[in-house]
Design a protein around this nucleic acid. Structure first.
Lengths: 403, 403
DNA sequence: ACACGTTAAATCACGGTCCGAAGTAAGCAT
DNA sequence: ATGCTTACTTCGGACCGTGATTTAACGTGT
């Protein structure tokens, strides 16, 4: 029942441009020759399309590779500074805005710390807008040269109707107390740039897929383990969104019906067993006044010193985490599971073997055998990169349309 | 990163044929006019493509609708007897083979009971092949008029490499003790018909989506509640398969880490709390020697008589079932959850309100609000129809290629 | 220096697609 | 019979990708 819409003959060209752009972007400089091989397009079409891309300024020649007795191949690449991207990370403690070129090299950034419980919506929006202004000013990039602004926020993002320029974007977040915040409308009042908003965990997952441990996988789940727990599901190379793009809310999956009380108000959520906040609280021996990160680091240190309470707590967390990962394996059948997030990267080296074992014992044999469980390779800073990935993805998919 | 492959201009035509065929198939008789409206194709193209389909015998005119003062519209439909389909259900107690026309009207069927623990592979394959022979003989349909054989089996189905005619299909099933059974190869030895194999629960889900409670939904999960528990996930109109098509194995999701022992050997699986087998066993008051269905019916009757142990057991099952459905809602964000399977249909009317309440209290507010939870409308016999749906789906997607 | 073989890229005729406008068919009303 | 309305068909035009052919840009051997 997969209904493609109407397709005219021009869509073919859009498709060809898109494939070639994708290949050039991800598989580095390539010659027209190689491009033809891997894309399946005939040499003639490659020449033709590449010519178009070059005259649009989207692709440029960059050196050549010598051959033994033939015309050398001319290498092509996506012009890095043909356009720019802005990524915004609305985190727990700060708003971070960064400007990238097409190759996702960071050209400028602007950080604005957020005071405790300072997630007043208007304030956050203001910080985002001034941040955008700052990075543009710092680099001298024109607004017209920016493909769009990608934003990673905590909570669930409702995308609204497509085609109305992001105006319908609404954010729901129980943790920072945003209830049906019309972020699209609020941002639109301050900028004309195209807007793309998604959950921060999902943008981090996207980054991990494109540039981290997920490279090459078509089906994967990025499990994000921080203060809370989330997941980003990639199915067949694209993020799995569900009906209203809130798919992948893993943290409040039940691992123990009727069990521990979670901050979401329900009982037995995964997050209540393995989230950093829950772990530090349950341990109860973190230095008073320390931050969550410091607390978790202290817990880890205690476990390394073989203090029984810490060891037991982490062992239990690994058990639950592994069991919940087994659920992901059974339900999504991915080829790879990637554990990311700051807490995941901190505890990962110690917990990974136990997590793998637990997953093996709880998951069905066959899908488990198809899945590898690995640590992420990107730190939490990658949220901005991941956010910038949203407009970039649109750019590549559309075959390189500048706005 | 959605890479479409090479596309030539002829693929456009294939696409157009496919859309028109889909529309005609699912939205009943339509005129060329309406076809143009809903498909977005121009009138000219519709005429052109329909003409082609008619001369291929795939579509036929069927009456006309009068108008007030204009040329009447000629209605079109997919020719029902242009081709045929075979569906096979390898169930717990029998092998059922049925032959359908394109409209999925059952023209003949053949049932072969399976003795207890009679899932010897060679025997089952033999029954399938003789069944196929029987329905063909009964109806006088030629092999060349059969688009393919769809088979629903218990367990996980590995599809193998595409394009090698189903030869790579391998089935893994812990319940009937099939370990890496090369079903594709075994069947291929006895027939030349194109083969399509999938898990029986998934084919039932497919049937429910096309002709049952799932009609019109693009994102749904069909939860199948029988002796065990399974699920079929539909994302954007197509079955979600995962890397090796084993996605949706919901029954062994953990609802209570370290809890009850499940027949799969692990602990705390959903199936151990709500599967019919587990329920009857835990109740312990079923008439001795009764079948699982009789036992469950007795349990239900006892609860209707307000016997405390039965009432409590069913209430607990509803709680766990609802919690597990909440997980599905959080993870897949469907617009609809459909509860099917024989046990689901039996207990559904009594349990549904409690299940809905439990799902509401365990799921996140936002995605829960987007989801309705309903009972399936198709009995377990629909497995054969669902199986026949597999070659049919291929037929429609390919734009009507007869083999 | 110069012709030759080799490989990469550009060019072009061809078959094919969809679209949109103009033309034709088939009813109803007067 | 004449006009009017609506459904369908036909046909020119703008494109597209393919695959063969031509042109460009190298090494090499003489």
């Amino acid at each position: 029942m997969a209904e493609r819409g109407k397709q005219t003959v021009r869509d073919l060209r859009r498709g060809s441009r898109s494939t070639l752009l994708h290949r050039l972007y991800f598989e580095g400089p390539l010659s027209r020759q190689e491009l033809g091989q891997i894309s399946g397009l005939s040499g003639g079409s490659v020449s033709n399309v590449v010519g178009e891309l070059i005259s649009d300024g989207l692709v440029e020649e960059c050196g050549s590779v010598e051959s033994d007795g033939g015309r050398p191949r001319i290498l092509l690449q996506v012009t890095p500074d043909r356009a720019h991207l802005i990524g915004v990370d609305v985190g727990e403690t700060q708003v971070r805005v960064a400007l990238f070129d097409l190759a996702l090299t960071e050209l400028a950034a602007s950080d604005h710390p957020l005071s405790d419980h300072g997630h007043d919506v208007d304030h956050v929006v203001e910080l985002m807008l001034t941040g955008i202004g700052e990075v543009l000013k710092q680099t001298g990039v024109q607004e017209s040269q920016v493909l769009g602004v990608g934003v990673g926020v905590p909570g669930i993002v409702e995308q609204g109707e497509p085609g109305q320029d992001g105006l319908g974007i609404v954010v729901h977040s129980q943790t920072v107390d945003w209830d049906a915040v019309p972020l699209g409308r609020l941002l639109r009042a301050g900028t004309d740039l195209p807007l793309y908003v998604d959950n921060g965990a999902k943008t981090l997952g996207q980054a991990e897929m494109w540039f981290g441990a997920g490279q090459g996988a078509r089906h994967a789940v990025v499990a994000l383990f921080g203060s809370g727990v989330g997941a980003c599901v990639i199915a067949d190379g694209a993020r799995f969104r569900g009906a209203t793009s809130s798919a992948g809310e893993w943290g409040h999956t039940k691992v123990h019906v009727g069990g521990r009380l979670c901050r979401c108000g329900s009982r037995g959520c995964l997050e209540a067993y393995v989230g950093a906040e829950a772990l530090v609280e349950r341990w109860g021996e973190a230095p008073p006044g320390s931050s969550e990160k410091e607390g978790l680091a202290a817990l880890l240190a205690a476990a390394e010193r073989d203090e029984p309470s810490a060891v037991a707590l982490l062992a239990e967390a690994a058990e639950y985490f592994g069991a919940a990962i087994a659920d992901l394996i059974n339900l999504f059948n991915p080829e790879r599971i990637i554990i990311g997030g700051w807490a995941g990267l901190l505890l990962g080296p110690r917990l990974l073997p136990a997590v793998r074992d637990a997953a093996t014992s709880y998951a069905l044999r066959f899908p488990r055998a198809q899945t590898s469980i690995e640590l992420g390779r990107l730190g939490p800073d990658a949220v901005t990169v991941g956010a910038a990935t949203l407009p970039l993805s649109r750019f590549l998919d559309s075959g390189g349309s500048i706005r």
